[in-house]
Amino acid sequence: MAASTIMWLDEANRTTQFELAGTHPDYRRLGLGRATLLHAMHLAQEAGARHMTVACLGAPGHPTARGLYCSVGFREFTRDAPLIKSGG
């Protein structure tokens, strides 16, 4: 498999959540991730989605992921803070 994404449609809220869009390392920088997301977004719209979200590892350490999602029209909405529970 060269590229893939998972999407979940919430019909009641007309929202699609994308997870884990990715491309095999041997096929990166060929536009496959972008094409996969654009096709999935089209399918989501056909299924009734009017809003789309993605949980992106867009922190400074993952600029490529953020760039991919921004290239297909996603924009930053919020940032999650990791929750950590120390032992003890």
Rank of each mutant, 00 (worst) to 15 (best):
A3L: 03
A3V: 02
S4L: 11
I6K: 05
I6A: 10
L9G: 02
L9S: 05
D10I: 00
D10L: 09
E11F: 03
R14V: 02
T16A: 15
T16K: 01
Q17M: 13
Q17W: 15
E19Q: 14
L20I: 00
L20Q: 12
G22W: 07
G22E: 11
G22C: 14
H24N: 09
D26I: 01
D26K: 06
Y27R: 04
R29L: 07
R29N: 10
L30Y: 12
L30G: 03
G31E: 08
G31M: 10
G31R: 06
G33F: 12
G33T: 07
G33K: 05
G33E: 09
R34V: 01
A35F: 02
A35V: 01
L37I: 05
L37F: 09
H39C: 00
H39T: 07
H39N: 03
H39I: 00
A40P: 01
M41Y: 05
M41Q: 14
L43E: 13
A44D: 04
A44G: 03
A44Q: 04
E46H: 06
G48S: 06
G48H: 08
R50G: 06
H51M: 08
M52V: 00
T53Y: 15
A55Y: 13
C56P: 00
C56N: 15
G58F: 15
A59T: 15
G61V: 05
H62C: 05
H62Q: 14
P63E: 13
G67V: 03
L68Q: 07
Y69D: 04
C70G: 07
V72Q: 07
V72E: 09
G73F: 11
R75T: 13
R75A: 14
T78C: 13
T78W: 10
A81L: 12
L83W: 11
L83A: 11
L83E: 10
K85L: 09
G87N: 08
G88D: 11
